[in-house]
Design a protein around this nucleic acid. Structure first.
Ligand SMILES: [Zn+2]
Length: 444
DNA sequence: CGGTGAGCCTGTTCGC
DNA sequence: TGCGAACAGGCTCACC
Protein backbone atom coordinates (compact mmCIF):
# COMPACT_ATOMS: atom_id res chain seq x y z
CA UNK A 1 0.00 0.00 0.00
CA UNK A 2 1.19 3.46 -0.88
CA UNK A 3 1.12 6.64 1.19
CA UNK A 4 1.70 10.02 -0.36
CA UNK A 5 1.66 13.56 0.96
CA UNK A 6 0.28 16.73 -0.50
CA UNK A 7 0.67 19.81 1.63
CA UNK A 8 -0.49 18.85 5.08
CA UNK A 9 -2.59 15.92 3.85
CA UNK A 10 -1.57 12.30 4.00
CA UNK A 11 -3.02 10.23 1.15
CA UNK A 12 -3.53 6.55 2.03
CA UNK A 13 -3.91 4.58 -1.18
CA UNK A 14 -5.85 1.49 -0.16
CA UNK A 15 -6.88 -1.17 -2.67
CA UNK A 16 -10.16 0.47 -3.56
CA UNK A 17 -10.39 3.62 -1.55
CA UNK A 18 -8.43 6.78 -0.98
CA UNK A 19 -8.25 8.00 2.60
CA UNK A 20 -7.14 11.55 3.21
CA UNK A 21 -5.84 12.38 6.66
CA UNK A 22 -5.07 15.77 8.13
CA UNK A 23 -3.41 15.84 11.55
CA UNK A 24 -4.35 19.46 12.33
CA UNK A 25 -2.82 20.49 15.65
CA UNK A 26 -1.85 17.33 17.43
CA UNK A 27 -2.69 14.27 15.37
CA UNK A 28 0.01 11.59 15.32
CA UNK A 29 0.51 8.15 13.88
CA UNK A 30 2.17 5.31 15.74
CA UNK A 31 3.33 2.00 14.33
CA UNK A 32 2.23 -0.74 16.73
CA UNK A 33 1.24 -4.39 17.24
CA UNK A 34 -1.00 -6.38 19.56
CA UNK A 35 0.62 -8.04 22.55
CA UNK A 36 0.97 -11.58 21.16
CA UNK A 37 1.30 -10.60 17.53
CA UNK A 38 3.85 -12.05 15.13
CA UNK A 39 4.60 -8.46 14.20
CA UNK A 40 6.91 -6.93 16.79
CA UNK A 41 7.97 -3.50 15.54
CA UNK A 42 6.64 -0.30 17.11
CA UNK A 43 4.85 -0.13 20.43
CA UNK A 44 2.67 -2.76 22.04
CA UNK A 45 -0.97 -1.73 21.85
CA UNK A 46 -3.20 -3.03 24.64
CA UNK A 47 -6.70 -1.83 23.78
CA UNK A 48 -8.14 -3.16 27.04
CA UNK A 49 -6.40 -0.35 28.91
CA UNK A 50 -9.04 2.07 27.71
CA UNK A 51 -8.34 4.81 30.25
CA UNK A 52 -4.59 4.93 30.02
CA UNK A 53 -3.17 8.35 29.31
CA UNK A 54 -2.11 7.18 25.87
CA UNK A 55 -4.97 4.92 24.84
CA UNK A 56 -7.75 7.34 25.58
CA UNK A 57 -6.54 9.47 22.68
CA UNK A 58 -6.25 6.64 20.18
CA UNK A 59 -9.25 7.12 17.92
CA UNK A 60 -8.49 4.88 14.97
CA UNK A 61 -6.64 1.58 14.63
CA UNK A 62 -5.64 0.31 11.19
CA UNK A 63 -5.02 -3.45 11.11
CA UNK A 64 -2.85 -4.61 8.25
CA UNK A 65 -2.47 -8.10 6.85
CA UNK A 66 1.05 -8.48 8.22
CA UNK A 67 -0.47 -7.89 11.69
CA UNK A 68 1.13 -4.47 11.96
CA UNK A 69 -1.04 -1.72 13.39
CA UNK A 70 -1.21 1.97 12.70
CA UNK A 71 -2.69 3.98 15.58
CA UNK A 72 -4.16 7.42 15.07
CA UNK A 73 -3.60 9.45 18.22
CA UNK A 74 -5.08 12.93 18.66
CA UNK A 75 -5.50 14.61 22.03
CA UNK A 76 -7.69 17.43 20.78
CA UNK A 77 -9.54 15.49 18.06
CA UNK A 78 -8.93 18.31 15.59
CA UNK A 79 -7.71 15.93 12.92
CA UNK A 80 -9.92 15.17 9.92
CA UNK A 81 -10.43 12.18 7.61
CA UNK A 82 -11.98 12.04 4.15
CA UNK A 83 -12.82 8.97 2.12
CA UNK A 84 -12.83 9.04 -1.69
CA UNK A 85 -12.32 6.77 -4.66
CA UNK A 86 -9.37 6.81 -7.05
CA UNK A 87 -11.67 8.39 -9.62
CA UNK A 88 -12.64 11.47 -7.73
CA UNK A 89 -10.25 12.22 -4.87
CA UNK A 90 -8.48 14.87 -6.96
CA UNK A 91 -11.59 16.29 -8.58
CA UNK A 92 -14.54 15.91 -6.21
CA UNK A 93 -15.46 19.41 -5.05
CA UNK A 94 -15.71 18.04 -1.51
CA UNK A 95 -12.12 16.84 -1.60
CA UNK A 96 -9.87 19.22 0.33
CA UNK A 97 -7.13 18.54 -2.23
CA UNK A 98 -8.87 20.48 -5.00
CA UNK A 99 -8.47 23.77 -3.14
CA UNK A 100 -4.77 23.37 -2.43
CA UNK A 101 -2.16 25.70 -3.90
CA UNK A 102 1.37 24.99 -5.09
CA UNK A 103 3.98 22.89 -3.38
CA UNK A 104 6.62 25.49 -2.37
CA UNK A 105 9.53 23.17 -3.26
CA UNK A 106 8.44 23.24 -6.91
CA UNK A 107 8.52 27.02 -7.18
CA UNK A 108 11.52 28.33 -9.10
CA UNK A 109 10.94 31.94 -8.04
CA UNK A 110 8.27 34.22 -6.63
CA UNK A 111 6.24 34.65 -9.85
CA UNK A 112 3.31 32.52 -8.73
CA UNK A 113 3.29 33.87 -5.18
CA UNK A 114 3.41 37.40 -6.56
CA UNK A 115 0.39 36.76 -8.78
CA UNK A 116 -1.54 35.49 -5.74
CA UNK A 117 -0.29 38.31 -3.50
CA UNK A 118 -1.59 41.03 -5.80
CA UNK A 119 -5.16 39.73 -5.44
CA UNK A 120 -4.82 39.00 -1.73
CA UNK A 121 -6.68 41.31 0.62
CA UNK A 122 -5.04 40.27 3.88
CA UNK A 123 -1.55 40.36 5.40
CA UNK A 124 1.65 38.68 4.24
CA UNK A 125 1.50 36.20 7.10
CA UNK A 126 -2.03 35.18 6.17
CA UNK A 127 -0.89 34.78 2.57
CA UNK A 128 1.78 32.35 3.71
CA UNK A 129 -0.68 30.43 5.91
CA UNK A 130 -3.29 30.16 3.16
CA UNK A 131 -3.13 26.58 1.89
CA UNK A 132 -4.76 27.58 -1.40
CA UNK A 133 -1.66 29.67 -2.16
CA UNK A 134 1.28 27.59 -0.96
CA UNK A 135 0.84 24.31 0.90
CA UNK A 136 2.57 23.19 4.07
CA UNK A 137 3.33 26.45 5.86
CA UNK A 138 2.04 26.55 9.43
CA UNK A 139 2.07 29.23 12.08
CA UNK A 140 5.61 28.63 13.33
CA UNK A 141 7.10 28.60 9.87
CA UNK A 142 5.12 31.62 8.65
CA UNK A 143 6.69 33.69 11.44
CA UNK A 144 10.15 32.33 10.74
CA UNK A 145 9.84 32.94 6.99
CA UNK A 146 8.73 36.55 7.53
CA UNK A 147 11.66 37.07 9.87
CA UNK A 148 14.24 35.66 7.48
CA UNK A 149 12.78 37.67 4.61
CA UNK A 150 12.79 40.76 6.87
CA UNK A 151 9.18 41.43 5.99
CA UNK A 152 6.71 42.58 8.66
CA UNK A 153 4.07 39.85 9.00
CA UNK A 154 1.35 42.51 9.11
CA UNK A 155 2.36 44.00 5.74
CA UNK A 156 -0.53 44.00 3.28
CA UNK A 157 0.14 41.18 0.84
CA UNK A 158 -0.79 43.22 -2.23
CA UNK A 159 2.03 45.69 -1.46
CA UNK A 160 4.66 42.94 -1.77
CA UNK A 161 7.05 43.38 -4.68
CA UNK A 162 8.14 40.62 -7.04
CA UNK A 163 11.50 40.66 -5.23
CA UNK A 164 9.74 40.29 -1.86
CA UNK A 165 7.97 37.24 -3.26
CA UNK A 166 11.21 35.79 -4.67
CA UNK A 167 12.71 36.16 -1.21
CA UNK A 168 9.65 34.72 0.55
CA UNK A 169 9.67 31.65 -1.68
CA UNK A 170 13.37 31.03 -1.19
CA UNK A 171 13.07 31.49 2.58
CA UNK A 172 10.05 29.18 2.63
CA UNK A 173 12.10 26.47 0.97
CA UNK A 174 14.98 27.10 3.34
CA UNK A 175 12.80 26.93 6.45
CA UNK A 176 10.76 23.91 5.39
CA UNK A 177 13.83 21.98 4.21
CA UNK A 178 15.65 22.63 7.44
CA UNK A 179 12.59 21.76 9.52
CA UNK A 180 12.10 18.49 7.61
CA UNK A 181 15.75 17.64 8.02
CA UNK A 182 15.51 18.17 11.77
CA UNK A 183 12.21 16.32 12.17
CA UNK A 184 9.96 19.33 12.65
CA UNK A 185 9.35 21.53 15.65
CA UNK A 186 8.18 20.05 18.92
CA UNK A 187 7.07 23.12 20.82
CA UNK A 188 4.88 21.46 23.41
CA UNK A 189 5.48 18.18 25.08
CA UNK A 190 2.51 16.03 24.27
CA UNK A 191 4.92 13.28 23.77
CA UNK A 192 4.91 9.85 25.21
CA UNK A 193 7.53 7.22 25.79
CA UNK A 194 9.59 6.47 22.66
CA UNK A 195 8.30 9.56 20.92
CA UNK A 196 10.82 11.13 18.66
CA UNK A 197 10.60 14.87 18.91
CA UNK A 198 11.79 17.36 16.32
CA UNK A 199 14.78 19.59 16.74
CA UNK A 200 13.83 22.57 14.61
CA UNK A 201 12.56 24.40 17.72
CA UNK A 202 16.22 25.01 18.57
CA UNK A 203 16.60 26.93 15.30
CA UNK A 204 13.67 29.28 15.80
CA UNK A 205 14.48 32.98 15.50
CA UNK A 206 11.17 34.47 16.60
CA UNK A 207 8.49 31.88 17.32
CA UNK A 208 8.04 31.43 21.08
CA UNK A 209 10.70 34.06 21.84
CA UNK A 210 8.51 36.98 22.96
CA UNK A 211 10.58 39.46 24.99
CA UNK A 212 13.86 37.68 24.26
CA UNK A 213 16.54 39.56 22.29
CA UNK A 214 16.55 39.23 18.52
CA UNK A 215 19.62 37.26 17.42
CA UNK A 216 20.34 39.84 14.72
CA UNK A 217 19.82 43.14 16.54
CA UNK A 218 19.06 42.53 20.22
CA UNK A 219 15.61 44.16 20.07
CA UNK A 220 13.10 42.19 22.18
CA UNK A 221 10.89 40.01 20.00
CA UNK A 222 7.30 41.29 19.81
CA UNK A 223 4.11 39.27 19.83
CA UNK A 224 0.73 40.19 18.38
CA UNK A 225 -2.26 38.47 16.82
CA UNK A 226 -2.72 38.28 13.07
CA UNK A 227 -5.68 36.41 11.67
CA UNK A 228 -6.34 35.04 15.14
CA UNK A 229 -2.91 33.46 15.35
CA UNK A 230 -0.08 34.28 17.73
CA UNK A 231 2.51 36.16 15.67
CA UNK A 232 6.14 36.78 16.58
CA UNK A 233 8.47 39.25 14.89
CA UNK A 234 11.37 41.62 15.38
CA UNK A 235 9.96 45.13 15.18
CA UNK A 236 13.37 46.36 14.15
CA UNK A 237 14.58 43.83 11.59
CA UNK A 238 11.16 43.47 9.99
CA UNK A 239 10.56 47.12 9.23
CA UNK A 240 9.46 48.80 6.08
CA UNK A 241 12.00 51.18 4.63
CA UNK A 242 11.37 54.87 5.33
CA UNK A 243 8.92 56.19 2.76
CA UNK A 244 10.94 59.25 1.78
CA UNK A 245 13.16 59.36 -1.28
CA UNK A 246 16.48 57.67 -0.57
CA UNK A 247 19.48 59.47 -2.03
CA UNK A 248 22.16 59.21 0.67
CA UNK A 249 22.82 55.89 2.35
CA UNK A 250 25.16 55.35 5.29
CA UNK A 251 26.78 51.97 5.79
CA UNK A 252 28.56 50.91 8.97
CA UNK A 253 29.64 47.76 10.73
CA UNK A 254 32.54 46.16 12.57
CA UNK A 255 35.91 45.95 10.83
CA UNK A 256 35.96 43.27 8.12
CA UNK A 257 32.25 42.64 8.51
CA UNK A 258 31.88 42.86 4.74
CA UNK A 259 31.16 46.55 4.24
CA UNK A 260 33.34 46.64 1.14
CA UNK A 261 31.23 43.95 -0.47
CA UNK A 262 28.12 45.99 0.22
CA UNK A 263 29.61 49.22 -1.05
CA UNK A 264 30.89 47.68 -4.25
CA UNK A 265 27.41 46.31 -4.97
CA UNK A 266 25.96 49.79 -4.49
CA UNK A 267 28.67 51.29 -6.70
CA UNK A 268 27.75 48.85 -9.45
CA UNK A 269 24.17 50.04 -9.07
CA UNK A 270 25.32 53.61 -9.77
CA UNK A 271 25.91 54.97 -6.29
CA UNK A 272 28.90 57.22 -5.66
CA UNK A 273 31.07 55.94 -2.83
CA UNK A 274 32.15 58.32 -0.10
CA UNK A 275 34.80 56.69 2.09
CA UNK A 276 35.08 58.44 5.46
CA UNK A 277 38.30 56.66 6.40
CA UNK A 278 39.92 57.90 3.21
CA UNK A 279 38.69 61.43 3.83
CA UNK A 280 40.08 61.33 7.37
CA UNK A 281 43.44 60.20 5.99
CA UNK A 282 43.41 62.99 3.40
CA UNK A 283 42.66 65.60 6.07
CA UNK A 284 45.88 64.71 7.87
CA UNK A 285 48.15 65.22 4.90
CA UNK A 286 50.54 68.14 5.30
CA UNK A 287 48.81 71.36 4.41
CA UNK A 288 45.28 69.89 4.61
CA UNK A 289 42.56 70.97 7.01
CA UNK A 290 43.41 68.87 10.09
CA UNK A 291 47.18 68.75 9.82
CA UNK A 292 47.95 71.90 11.78
CA UNK A 293 45.38 71.31 14.55
CA UNK A 294 46.49 67.72 15.15
CA UNK A 295 50.09 68.78 15.20
CA UNK A 296 49.33 71.46 17.81
CA UNK A 297 47.55 68.97 20.03
CA UNK A 298 49.84 65.96 19.79
CA UNK A 299 53.23 67.59 19.21
CA UNK A 300 55.99 67.08 16.69
CA UNK A 301 56.81 63.54 17.86
CA UNK A 302 54.01 62.17 15.63
CA UNK A 303 55.79 63.48 12.54
CA UNK A 304 57.93 61.50 10.13
CA UNK A 305 61.20 62.97 8.85
CA UNK A 306 59.41 64.28 5.75
CA UNK A 307 57.02 66.29 7.89
CA UNK A 308 53.98 64.09 7.25
CA UNK A 309 51.95 62.73 10.19
CA UNK A 310 52.83 59.13 11.03
CA UNK A 311 49.36 57.63 11.48
CA UNK A 312 50.61 54.57 13.34
CA UNK A 313 52.14 56.80 16.02
CA UNK A 314 48.91 58.71 16.34
CA UNK A 315 47.07 55.41 16.72
CA UNK A 316 49.48 54.28 19.43
CA UNK A 317 48.76 57.35 21.54
CA UNK A 318 45.03 57.17 21.05
CA UNK A 319 44.63 53.45 21.72
CA UNK A 320 45.62 53.72 25.38
CA UNK A 321 44.34 57.22 26.12
CA UNK A 322 40.61 57.78 25.88
CA UNK A 323 40.86 61.53 26.44
CA UNK A 324 43.30 61.80 23.55
CA UNK A 325 40.96 59.74 21.37
CA UNK A 326 38.03 62.02 22.12
CA UNK A 327 40.20 65.02 21.37
CA UNK A 328 41.40 63.58 18.07
CA UNK A 329 37.86 62.69 17.05
CA UNK A 330 36.63 66.18 17.89
CA UNK A 331 39.33 67.56 15.58
CA UNK A 332 38.75 65.20 12.69
CA UNK A 333 35.01 64.50 12.69
CA UNK A 334 33.85 68.06 11.87
CA UNK A 335 36.34 68.24 9.02
CA UNK A 336 35.27 64.89 7.64
CA UNK A 337 31.65 65.90 7.93
CA UNK A 338 32.32 69.17 6.08
CA UNK A 339 33.99 67.29 3.24
CA UNK A 340 31.16 64.76 3.04
CA UNK A 341 28.48 67.45 3.04
CA UNK A 342 30.27 69.10 0.13
CA UNK A 343 30.63 65.80 -1.76
CA UNK A 344 26.96 64.84 -1.53
CA UNK A 345 25.64 68.23 -2.58
CA UNK A 346 24.65 67.15 -6.08
CA UNK A 347 20.94 66.31 -5.68
CA UNK A 348 20.86 64.37 -8.96
CA UNK A 349 23.33 61.78 -7.71
CA UNK A 350 22.95 59.01 -5.14
CA UNK A 351 25.67 58.38 -2.57
CA UNK A 352 26.82 55.60 -0.32
CA UNK A 353 28.70 56.77 2.77
CA UNK A 354 31.05 54.17 4.19
CA UNK A 355 31.52 55.38 7.76
CA UNK A 356 32.82 53.02 10.48
CA UNK A 357 31.68 55.45 13.20
CA UNK A 358 28.49 56.60 11.50
CA UNK A 359 26.47 57.11 14.68
CA UNK A 360 29.34 58.10 16.96
CA UNK A 361 30.25 60.91 14.57
CA UNK A 362 26.61 61.89 14.13
CA UNK A 363 26.82 61.40 10.38
CA UNK A 364 23.66 59.32 10.32
CA UNK A 365 21.77 62.62 10.22
CA UNK A 366 23.07 63.15 6.67
CA UNK A 367 21.57 59.83 5.55
CA UNK A 368 18.13 58.96 4.24
CA UNK A 369 18.83 55.34 5.13
CA UNK A 370 21.36 53.59 7.35
CA UNK A 371 22.71 50.08 6.91
CA UNK A 372 24.58 47.95 9.38
CA UNK A 373 26.61 45.01 8.12
CA UNK A 374 26.49 42.33 10.76
CA UNK A 375 28.61 39.23 10.95
CA UNK A 376 29.39 36.14 12.97
CA UNK A 377 26.31 36.55 15.17
CA UNK A 378 24.92 33.21 14.01
CA UNK A 379 28.24 31.59 14.75
CA UNK A 380 28.24 33.12 18.19
CA UNK A 381 24.73 31.89 18.78
CA UNK A 382 25.60 28.37 17.67
CA UNK A 383 28.49 28.35 20.10
CA UNK A 384 26.25 29.48 22.92
CA UNK A 385 23.70 26.80 22.19
CA UNK A 386 26.39 24.14 21.85
CA UNK A 387 27.70 25.06 25.28
CA UNK A 388 24.17 24.72 26.58
CA UNK A 389 24.00 28.25 27.90
CA UNK A 390 21.23 30.75 27.38
CA UNK A 391 21.98 33.59 24.97
CA UNK A 392 20.36 35.93 27.51
CA UNK A 393 22.71 34.99 30.34
CA UNK A 394 25.66 35.14 28.00
CA UNK A 395 24.75 38.59 26.76
CA UNK A 396 26.81 40.20 29.55
CA UNK A 397 29.90 38.35 28.42
CA UNK A 398 29.80 39.77 24.91
CA UNK A 399 32.89 41.72 24.08
CA UNK A 400 32.44 45.47 24.02
CA UNK A 401 32.68 45.89 20.28
CA UNK A 402 29.82 43.49 19.82
CA UNK A 403 27.80 45.31 22.46
CA UNK A 404 28.46 48.52 20.58
CA UNK A 405 27.40 46.76 17.44
CA UNK A 406 24.11 45.71 18.95
CA UNK A 407 23.42 49.27 20.14
CA UNK A 408 24.09 50.50 16.62
CA UNK A 409 21.88 47.87 15.10
CA UNK A 410 18.93 49.09 17.12
CA UNK A 411 19.33 52.56 15.54
CA UNK A 412 19.90 51.42 12.03
CA UNK A 413 17.23 51.08 9.31
CA UNK A 414 18.48 47.92 7.64
CA UNK A 415 20.70 45.09 8.79
CA UNK A 416 22.62 43.06 6.23
CA UNK A 417 23.61 39.73 7.69
CA UNK A 418 26.97 38.58 6.41
CA UNK A 419 27.39 35.53 8.64
CA UNK A 420 26.57 32.98 5.99
CA UNK A 421 27.73 32.63 2.42
CA UNK A 422 28.82 35.36 0.08
CA UNK A 423 25.85 34.51 -2.13
CA UNK A 424 23.42 34.96 0.76
CA UNK A 425 24.84 38.40 1.50
CA UNK A 426 24.84 39.31 -2.15
CA UNK A 427 21.19 38.41 -2.40
CA UNK A 428 20.28 40.61 0.57
CA UNK A 429 22.17 43.55 -0.91
CA UNK A 430 20.66 43.07 -4.36
CA UNK A 431 17.12 42.86 -3.02
CA UNK A 432 17.73 45.93 -0.87
CA UNK A 433 19.00 47.92 -3.85
CA UNK A 434 15.98 46.81 -5.85
CA UNK A 435 13.65 47.77 -2.99
CA UNK A 436 15.19 51.22 -2.79
CA UNK A 437 14.91 51.62 -6.56
CA UNK A 438 11.19 50.74 -6.46
CA UNK A 439 10.66 53.05 -3.51
CA UNK A 440 12.33 55.97 -5.27
CA UNK A 441 10.24 55.38 -8.38
CA UNK A 442 7.06 55.65 -6.34
CA UNK A 443 8.06 58.65 -4.24
CA UNK A 444 9.26 60.75 -7.18
C1' DC B 1 -18.45 41.23 0.75
C1' DG B 2 -14.65 41.27 4.20
C1' DG B 3 -13.03 40.73 8.43
C1' DT B 4 -13.48 38.81 13.17
C1' DG B 5 -14.27 35.53 16.35
C1' DA B 6 -16.25 31.35 17.99
C1' DG B 7 -15.96 26.61 17.79
C1' DC B 8 -13.88 22.19 17.73
C1' DC B 9 -11.17 19.46 22.04
C1' DT B 10 -7.92 18.47 25.87
C1' DG B 11 -3.85 19.42 28.44
C1' DT B 12 -0.42 22.55 30.25
C1' DT B 13 1.03 26.59 32.27
C1' DC B 14 0.67 30.71 34.69
C1' DG B 15 -1.07 34.00 37.96
C1' DC B 16 -3.76 34.68 42.02
C1' DT C 1 -1.67 23.40 46.74
C1' DG C 2 -5.81 24.64 44.45
C1' DC C 3 -8.40 26.83 40.89
C1' DG C 4 -9.73 29.24 36.96
C1' DA C 5 -8.19 31.51 32.89
C1' DA C 6 -5.45 31.81 28.99
C1' DC C 7 -3.30 29.55 25.57
C1' DA C 8 -1.65 25.94 22.08
C1' DG C 9 1.01 23.74 16.13
C1' DG C 10 -5.25 24.30 12.01
C1' DC C 11 -9.16 25.13 9.75
C1' DT C 12 -14.21 26.15 9.00
C1' DC C 13 -18.22 28.58 9.48
C1' DA C 14 -21.50 31.88 11.42
C1' DC C 15 -22.19 36.45 12.08
C1' DC C 16 -21.85 41.47 12.00
ZN1 LIG D 1 16.08 42.16 15.07
Amino acid sequence: MDIERYGKFLIFKFEEKILLSHLRMEGKYYLAHYENSSYQKGLTYQPEEEDSKFNKHVHLVFEFTDESLLLYHDVRKFGRFYLFTYNDYLTNPRSPLVKLGHEPFNEKDGTYLYSKAQKFKKTTKELLLDQSVLVGIGNIYADEICFLAKIPPQKSAFTLTKEDCDLLVSKTQEVLNKALELGGSTVRSYHFANDASGRFQNELNVYGREGEPCYLCGTPISKTKIGGRGTHFCAHCQQELPSKKIRVIGVTGLISAGKSMVSSAFQKAGYHLVDADQIAKDCLVKGESCYQKVLETFGREILRSDGEIERSKLREIVVKDEVALTKLNSLIHPEVEAVIVEKIKDERKCFLLDVPLLFEAGLDKLCDLTIFVNTHEKVRRKRLIARGTMPLKEAAKLNSSLLEAIKKMAKVDVIIDNSLTREATDFQVKSLIEKIRQLNLISK
